[in-house]
Simulated scan of single mutants.
Amino acid sequence: MSNDRHEADHHAYANSTFGPPPLADPDAPFRVENSHLMKMELGKSSSSCKLSFVTRLNRRAVLQEFWCASYEEAAVYQNLAAHSDVVNFKEQLTRVDFVGGNGKPTYTKVDAHLLLKDMNEVLFSVKYDTKARRKSYIEEIANIAGQCSRQVADRFNLGSRYAFHPVYRKCAAEIHKARRGWDPESDRIVLEAANDLGGAFSFGALIDRSMLGAKGYRAAVRLIGDGEITKNILDPFCPETHCRSAA
């Protein structure tokens, strides 16, 4: 992606809370930047931070470090980052003020704030599966969501890693691993192979056409993660999976 294209993307999201992630420096593609938090700035999670999660949000983006209060948060962040509709997200960025069930005003810092390709913004509250399914907690989140202004976000979601289908979770893990690498030349060759194949083709045929072997596999996974090649979201990365070029 050229700098002009990147600036155009940022301009498109000028009215959003934040824009696309910064591009990686081709001369230092493995340098890691903070999403927006330093570890000591975690606020509500400062005493319970368990780990950091480092990923690229697309194959050209800088590696970003996200601080997580739990493994569950890290797992959900990985699933969110792998969705081709997600442009960017920030952890514990957004405060939502609301009146609680006791009638008193209070607020919460939401676990993830997503920016989507359609310019909608989504808040995502992460909880372990048993709590995310608990009727009383669902009602609590519904109360907060009902009081959340559309100027803050367009939707408010709740879930654990198990809100995502098992095949999707496996694909998300593969996208994460492939994006951790850096190989723009292989990405270019595989994208050209997809365009040459035209229409529908199998994942295996794409790898064969690229003649790059394992490098081609990883590049194809990155391109699918970015939405430049498409497949059914619940199909695995296997030779017979049907794919299409998004061009």
Rank of each mutant, 00 (worst) to 15 (best):
P239E: 05
R60W: 08
N3A: 14
Y77R: 13
P21F: 03
L123E: 02
G103P: 12
C49K: 05
H176K: 12
D196R: 12
F124Q: 05
L234A: 07
T230M: 09
L234G: 07
A14K: 10
S84Q: 15
M119Q: 08
K170V: 15
R56L: 06
F203G: 01
E41L: 09
C238F: 08
P22I: 10
H165F: 08
G19E: 07
W182T: 01
A200W: 09
S35A: 13
A205G: 04
P29Y: 15
F89K: 03
Q151V: 12
T106V: 01
E240W: 13
H176E: 08
E228V: 14
L37P: 01
I144P: 00
I233N: 00
L123K: 05
D25C: 12
R222G: 01
L114M: 07
L93C: 14
D118A: 11
K131C: 12
K135L: 08
D208R: 12
Y168I: 10
C238T: 12
A194K: 01
K50P: 06
D235E: 04
A112H: 00
L80G: 05
V87H: 00
K90S: 07
Y13R: 06
L116P: 00
G216W: 02
T230K: 13
P26D: 06
S47R: 15
A142E: 07
D85W: 06
F53Y: 14
N102H: 11
L80E: 10
Y13L: 02
K90I: 08
F124E: 09
A246M: 07
R133C: 05
I141H: 02
Q92N: 09
T241Y: 00
K170M: 14
M40K: 15
F98D: 00
I224V: 05
L191F: 15
D154F: 09
F66E: 03
T106H: 01
L37K: 12
A145N: 03
N58Q: 10
A69E: 11
K131E: 13
A163C: 10
M119I: 03
N58S: 10
V221Q: 00
D118T: 06
E140S: 05
E41I: 09
E41K: 11
E7Y: 14
K109F: 15
T94Y: 02
T108H: 13
A219P: 01
D196G: 12
Y162H: 06
Y137V: 02
P20R: 03
S16V: 02
F18G: 13
G146I: 11
T94M: 05
P26Q: 07
D196S: 14
C171P: 01
I233R: 04
F98C: 01
E228H: 15
L158G: 03
A112Y: 00
P166C: 09
G101T: 12
G43D: 08
S46N: 12
L93K: 14
K44V: 14
D27G: 11
K215M: 09
